[in-house]
């Protein structure tokens, strides 16, 4: 079993997981590079690159518009959904083609195969939802929304906040983590188990599973953004 690169900051008891930091930073740079490269010549009559970027923006705008009815919130969320989708998508794919191991230490893998990462993003989404909700209805109105549409739903609505957080983060984490575990198993355990024969057999299997994982990673990025927008949409509309 590989070890992860976790450092303990002396005297504080705080842990720093370098794998997540390296992976997320790398993918942030990649996302920025893609967007930067695609938007070099912005024209009224779009060129091919601009078309790709506009298609992506339209796609995420579609997610936002389908789930958030408030037009003011839609405007704010358009950028958020766009960047979140690309960022999570790239982080999901990172571990599929790049797993760098130095000695026993895993240096690069999908940051989203770590619950801390997914929980961070889920928390960010929910905080954004709270903020937008309070902005729209005021603190009092926002808190009153927990007792809507009927009063006895109050405890359920409050519990829902926690379950939203957990389902949003753990769904993404579980999918990506499982994909990577299976990929590692195929490559490290199944491959060398019976010599050359299983190595040859493991190659197409790994390929198939990688393809499937690309699919899963895309779907999960879409699902994450969609559910984020659903939660935010719930907060900014009154039932």
């Amino acid at each position: 079993m590989e070890k992860s690169l976790v450092f303990n900051i002396n005297g504080t008891g705080l842990n720093v997981d370098l794998v997540g930091i390296i992976g997320s930073t790398l993918m942030a740079i990649v996302v920025f590079a893609i967007c930067y490269a695609l938007s070099r010549k912005v024209e009224m009559k779009p060129n091919k690159k601009q078309n790709v970027l506009e298609y992506l923006i339209d796609f995420t705008d579609g997610i936002v518009k389908d789930n958030v009815e408030d037009p003011a919130a839609q405007k704010h969320l358009s950028l958020y959904a766009f960047v979140l989708f690309l960022f999570i998508f790239c982080m999901n794919q990172l571990g599929l083609f790049l797993e760098v191991k130095v000695g026993d230490y895993m240096v690069i893998k999908s940051p989203t195969a770590d619950p801390v990462t997914t929980m961070s993003f889920a928390m960010m989404t929910l905080l954004l939802a709270f903020t937008l909700g309070i902005q729209k209805f005021g603190t009092k109105g926002y808190l009153q929304n927990y007792a809507r549409p009927v009063g006895f739903l109050l405890p359920i609505n409050i519990i829902e906040e926690f379950t939203n957080f957990l389902t949003l983060s753990l769904r993404l984490y579980g999918n990506i983590f499982a994909g990577e575990v299976l990929l590692t198993l195929i490559g490290n355990q199944l491959g060398p188990s019976m010599g050359i024969v299983t190595r040859i057999l493991a190659a197409p299997l790994a390929m198939i599973w990688q393809g499937f994982s690309v699919f899963i990673g895309s779907i999960q990025a879409y699902v994450f953004v969609t559910l984020s927008m659903v939660y935010i949409g719930n907060k900014v509309t009154q039932e």
């Binding site: 705080l14 997540g20 695609l38 979140l84 961070s120 960010m124």
Partner: peptide
């Protein structure tokens, strides 16, 4: 690890601003 969470948030917000300024 709270440091990682903070790091993700910072990276994401920087990415958000950069993408907004240069591409989006």
């Amino acid at each position: 690890s709270i440091i990682n969470t903070l790091w993700y948030l910072i990276v994401f917000s920087i990415l958000l601003l950069a993408v907004k300024h240069y591409a989006w």
